[in-house]
Amino acid sequence: MPSLKDLKNRIDSVKSTRKITKAMQMVAAAKLRRAQDAAESARPYAERMQAVMSGLAAAVGASEGAPRLLAGTGSNQVHMLVVMTSERGLCGGFNSTIVRAARLKIDALLAEGKTVKIITVGKKGREQLKRDYKQYFVDHVDMSGVKKLGYDDAAGIADDLLARYEAGEFDVCTIFFNKFLSVISQEPQVKQIIPATFEAPEEGAESGALYDYEPSEEGVLADLLPRGISTQIFTALLENGASEEGARMTAMDNATRNAGEMIEKLTIEFNRSRQAVITNELIEIISGAEAL
């Protein structure tokens, strides 16, 4: 049985833990709002871009001179996987879900005898993947210095990928990130960005006016595809940022609640043993008096 002093100390320490988790939850909530706003304001650009590109890709896609970013290298032997995770922990299952999705994909690819290369964004995923797949790592993007995610960060990653693609380092590129559905639910996403894939336009959807293209359909497409890749990476990073804060908020909310329950339990235990001590002392006094 712990002494009264021990119990008191434990209650105090759990109380300060609760304060910290509570504060972290509130910080996460504020950051989440900002991240959501950022994701929201990036949407018009991404949507337009996607719409124009899928229209163009449908027109050019089948022809001979289709750009390599769209048509692929003609093989799918070497796979580049970009795994996007957070820089900091304490955000529940956020990183584990992405890593699990990545693991599944890596194992499947290896089983098929493909070559796998991995680029990690954010150090948490790197730590988790390092144990089993260290030999496949080719690069790591450190986002810890990034305070507010800008388009330039995404463009940097995209430029690096494009340079590697031009150099023939890989055939297929897939990104892993969490899609933000709500504060309590994030969904790991696996998305192939090179060669570019497009959701087929809905059947019966208005195909819109027939556009003239300047300088030419191929020219515009060749100009757009690299931008499209930066945009997709940017969107993924933004979704990831919002998901991370959402997951952290939920995790910290749970931690705060747990701490509250623990304090209640400990307080009850503390009061009981305090009463027991008092009763004991009384018994000692009374029996001492009776003995006289």
């Binding site: 124009v52 556009y211 003239d212 300047e214 020219g219 757009l224």
Partner: peptide
């Protein structure tokens, strides 16, 4: 500033996509 030269667009313009 279109890649093939500047252009001024007004309402009822023909549909164009330009870099």
């Amino acid at each position: 500033p279109g890649s093939e030269g500047d252009m001024t667009v007004m309402a009822e313009h023909a549909p164009v996509i330009t870099t």
